[in-house]
Design a protein around this nucleic acid. Structure first.
Lengths: 166, 166
DNA sequence: ATATGTGCAAATCTTTTGCAAATTC
DNA sequence: GAATTTGCAAAAGATTTGCACATAT
């Protein structure tokens, strides 16, 4: 879905054929369902996040929002991100801190997925697997832990970069 | 190994019986093997990290180090952490940002493991599983990606907190 | 009308950096 | 002795906050 994304096929059978397709439920609908008060700025930010072609950090989100609403402030961006995160509607990522300590955000997807970051070219690949689902179930069961958020990030070297010599 | 750690037993057979035991190779030996120049302060910091009973952040590491060497500076702590991280000898964790944006560090272990953080009580549990190993192999194979670092963090509610009512 | 959201500017928190002095091999 | 490491103090980067004003229901 994101330009640099590579979504792997299912590694095991037993589920629907489209299990490996990542979909992003409507944030606006979720917010409405949760009775969250909506403002013009929230609508704008949510729309940008929902339709982002890549992972956004707060500064980039602000920049994009200001193109349509120059008055919007950094604080509003951070406050809206906090709101969405608290409601479980977006996920916060580090993407291996390839460039600084900032965070990246993406709308929650129907399935948890892993982010693989290439230390050399910076490509971010997404990976979906039933093994991941199994692992989550195992963790929840064995530790009797109610999982709310999962973040699996991998850093290393992608195929392309390794071919080009390390 | 850490006080709040709960290390799960193997979920599947087929490996050595002690596969689920987490061990921490000697950082000092690794550094020597890699020909890293050692100084008194590095030795001190490395020793503290190696023997830490819990996950340390930079400020806590500095505090502990200053008990033995009051002259040691923040910058040295950060520079040493960067060195160890670059050499692949320590892992950097967020622990779900339960308290602020700081990072936590732990000596690399013989096996990758997941950190589960309780949003309510702050307990950190460690979880080892062959499923995790399988998942890593699957990611590496299917994406032809050379994995160097893996970070799996889970946030949610632990058994104890759920029993006490949410 | 009341509760909630927003802009602004300043503060906070964590981490990084330039440089002269000290240390290691 | 040459190269590397350290302390210091300042800077940088990301995120948060107090408060007066604006907006949503």
């Amino acid at each position: 879905m994101f330009p640099s994304a590579v979504v792997a096929k299912e590694s095991q059978l037993g589920r629907s054929e489209n299990d490996h397709v990542i979909t992003r439920p409507s944030l606006m609908k979720e917010l409405a369902a949760q009775g969250v008060r909506m403002t013009a700025q929230r609508r704008l930010l949510v729309e940008i996040i929902q339709n982002a072609r890549r992972h956004l950090d707060a500064a980039k989100l602000l920049e994009l929002a200001q193109k349509q609403e120059p008055e919007i402030d950094r604080a509003t961006v951070y406050r809206t991100l906090a709101l969405l995160k608290d409601r479980g509607l977006i996920d916060e990522l580090d993407l291996m801190h390839l460039e600084g300590e900032k965070h990246y955000y993406e709308a929650r997807t129907n399935r948890d997925h892993c982010h693989m970051a290439c230390f050399r070219c910076g490509a971010i690949m997404e990976f979906v697997s039933t093994l991941f689902e199994k692992l989550k179930r195992e963790m929840a069961k064995q530790s009797d832990f109610q999982i709310r958020v999962v973040r699996l990030e991998v850093g290393g070297y992608c195929q392309k970069c390794r071919k080009e010599g390390k």
